[in-house]
Nucleic acid binder design. Structure first.
Lengths: 174, 174
DNA sequence: TATTTCGTTTAGTAATTACTAAACACACAT
DNA sequence: ATGTGTGTTTAGTAATTACTAAACGAAATA
């Protein structure tokens, strides 16, 4: 049972698929990214189809959302009608892109709804114990979300420093 | 159309449900947490059932995973056979707890599989261009995961400083 | 021991999500 | 204009996940 490169690759693709699924993305998306990531050259849609075992339709849509997230890049060759896809290798850039994408997402809408709850509580204020209690709790949650958000932005802003350097600095702090 | 407290609460519960779903948790889990979070007193399983509209079975299992994640706490009253549940209000503590929980999870297993790919590449080394290429790529990914992990740990370690203070410090850096 | 009151488990259903197969649309080449 | 090689869309299916209803078990009470 020789450990061939293609075997190792297959296992890697499998691993990224699971990670993808864990993060709430289709596992096919992870597979597509993995295949592109391990390829030295950009791949056409049909090559991705071949290497992942998915159908053209699935690859077409999923590679597009990957592109929207900035995790892959689409390119073309002159005199060739095919599109070619390559994995983004700068993960910090990808994160930044994903966070931007997130701004318009269902998620941010939901987070905003917490903020909105707060406003409604303020605008229809009734001075009693329960109202006060609810207000304090919702406010605390909203502040937490804000804190996370600011932290993420701060880290992204320091991208050029390198994530591990940022970590080192933090570790010195206390 | 008066904006009553119970209306506001319902909307809040709805909001957290969506957030929960976005993060890949059942939306019922979000609803349960929200209900507990807005309650000044700990609630029994049946009270949660009543306020969320879920069944006892669903609440039983989901409240348990919430407890495992450290997002709610189970308690009992003397001379009362019921269990009572209350929301954790220290979110930083909750995050820490979730990250610990994660150690044993399917996710970490998957992340470890990347590390494992790397080892296999090293152990069966073949000196050629492709092998080298794949190795470099996998290594970069593994280092990225490591960096994220260290960063998370560093932030958690600074919990007592307050998340927003950490953010402030980071913002001064550059 | 039988009964009540609680939480858990289980087996099945509903709802959602990922994916397939195939039709389609567009651009280019002949 | 017709045919060929692309990527996209769509309608349906498979697989997964969240949830329900109801049986069960355990512990306290009668």
């Amino acid at each position: 049972m020789a450990t061939t490169l293609s075997q190792i690759k297959r296992d890697f693709v499998e691993g990224l698929s699971q990670i993808s699924r864990f993060w709430g993305f289709p596992k096919g998306m992870g597979a597509i990214f993995a295949v592109l990531y391990l390829s030295p050259t950009a791949l056409s849609l049909d090559e991705i189809v071949e290497r992942t075992g998915l159908t053209k339709g699935a690859v077409s849509t999923e590679v597009r959302t990957l592109a929207r997230m900035g995790l892959v890049h689409r390119s073309t060759k002159l005199g060739d009608r095919k599109d070619y896809y390559a994995a983004e290798t700068d993960f910090y850039a990808a994160i930044r892109s994903i966070l931007q994408e997130r701004q318009n997402s269902e998620f941010d809408h939901a987070v905003r709804s917490v903020k909105e709850t707060l406003t409604r509580l303020e605008e229809n204020w009734v001075e009693n114990e329960e109202w006060n209690f609810v207000y304090e709790r919702v406010k605390a949650l909203q502040e937490f979300f804000d804190a996370i958000d600011s932290l993420a932005k701060a880290v992204i802003r320091l991208e050029s420093l390198g994530l591990s350097n940022v970590t080192k600095i933090l570790n010195v702090l206390k």
